[in-house]
Every structure is written in C-alpha cells, then in structure tokens.
Nucleic acid binder design. Structure first.
Lengths: 130, 130
DNA sequence: TGACTCCTCAGACGAGTCGTCTTAGACTTC
DNA sequence: GAAGTCTAAGACGACTCGTCTGAGGAGTCA
C-alpha cells in the first residue's frame, strides 16, 4: 500500500533535518527554524512539505492536540541506506560491494576521511577477530 | 564553464550502459541494443539522450566520419563516486564517513555482500600493514 | 536527374515533479 | 462576535524527462 518509498527532495529534507535536530515540532516552530521568517505563504509551504513527507512515511503527525505535532519517522541513517541502495540498484546491478570498494579504495576520500576509514576498519577487524 | 555535472537520468543511463558494454557505437547500434526495435521515433529518442549526455560531458562524439560515433566519457566508477558524494553532501554535511560506517556495519547487506566486505577489508588491512 | 534512404539538428509535445502561494473554513481566545 | 491561528485543498509557474515530428543535408543507384 502506498508509494513504497519515494525519495525526499531538497526542501523536504531541510524540514526533516530540523525535525531530526529539534525533535517533535509544530509547523510554526519548523517555519522559524528552516526559513527564519514568518508569513502565511512560508507557513503553507512548510505545511505542504510536511504533508508530502507524511505520504512518503518520513514524518508522523500527531492530530490529538489542537495544533498538530510532527516528528521524524525515519532516521538519517535509514535515508542514507535507501540512497545507497538506489545507487547500487541503478549502477551496480543491485550489489553494494562496488560502493564499498569505491569508498575503501579511497577514490574520493580526503585525508581525514581516510584516517577515519582506517580506524573504522581496525575497530571492525578487532570485533570480527574475537 | 557549463553545468559542472548534472546527474544522469534512467533512460540516459541505459544508453550509457550500452556504451560501457559495447564500446564506441553509432546511434543505430545503440537503438538496437537498448530498445531492440527500430523506427524513426526511437532513433530520435536515443539521439536526444546522447545529445543530453554530451552536454553533461558523459559521452564524447566523433564527428569526423559521415556517421557520428559515440563513446562513454565517464567510467561507471566515476558515476558511482559522484552519486556517493551527492548523498554525503545532502545527508552527511559532505563527509563520506557515515556512508562507510553504514556499509561496514552491514545494515542493509546480504550475507554474500558481508563476505565480500570481509574479504575486502582483509585485503586492505594486509596492504596497509606492510 | 530524380527518387530513395539514412543521417543530423532543432524544436515541441505531454506528463510529471517541486517549491510556492492563495483561499476557504474551522477552532480558540478574549 | 471579532480577531487571530490553525488545517485543508487546490492551483500556479518553472522545470525535467522521455518521446516524437519535421526540415534539410549527403550519399546511392536506376
């Protein structure tokens, strides 16, 4: 039922980020946080974005109060996973391994990222060894 | 100059895949390979897709002959890199590390992918050790 | 020479998406 | 009951994407 899972657009993501950072919020709070200004049109924009995020099952709405409360229904990490999977599907025949290879071989990694990768691998290696 | 690098759409990707698999080709060859049918409209469609891929600097066109030859101007791996970078930019503030973490922690990985990951890490670990 | 075929090129189409905005009506508060 | 705030529905303009049409050039061959 429903559109399985569609990707989140840029403006929608900005709202979602605000929810991740600030926790459950009202529309007005989100307007302040995302746009830093007020006005009926901006309010309606955020409202529409939340509505679309809701149909994408990315936010949940609490209708019990007089003013609706919104909270994120997906974790950032879950979204990362979806997108990685999408890349794997369209470019690697569904396998995640080429992505991993790409990252591990450090093709586009900064020095800092390479250090972090190394730490990550050592940690994982230790975990598997026992 | 030019639109830096825009993402490749699904239909465009199908053409690009054909170029990766078969090497430099004419439009007609690509039509056969991608659509498996002939006709002026399909021909024009592939032509338009190639034209757009060219402006995105993803294919190169050789105009010297009577019939133009097209070849891929990006590797699959490069495209993977672009998309990973895009995910990192929009979801991780530009850092690739969270992607790596996600993959390494095996959140969405199949058993086979996990085995491959392990092999990959051992290989890398050995390489770094010396 | 003229008909035919195959090509390139420019442009336009219909459908869909995305961010924004307007409006109408319901509810609360004083 | 007037003012202010909320929800809900819908429409807008701009853009993208896959597809298609048509004009014109170049080559071939009877």
């Amino acid at each position: 039922m429903g559109d399985l899972q569609q990707d989140v657009t840029e403006a929608e993501l900005a709202v979602l980020q605000a929810l991740w950072d600030s926790g459950p919020s009202t529309i007005r709070q989100l307007v302040d946080r995302v746009y830093g200004q007020s006005g009926t049109s901006v309010y309606a924009t955020v409202q529409k974005l939340l509505e679309r995020l809701e149909t994408k099952r990315c936010v949940a709405r609490d209708r019990s109060g007089a003013v609706h409360m919104f909270r994120a229904a997906v974790h950032r990490d879950e979204l990362i996973g979806r997108r990685l999977r999408a890349v794997a599907d369209s470019l690697c025949g569904g396998s995640m391994t080429p992505l991993l290879t790409h990252l591990v071989e450090g093709k586009g990694l900064s020095a800092k990222e390479q250090r972090e990768l190394r730490a990550l691998i050592e940690r994982l290696d230790g975990r598997k060894r026992k």
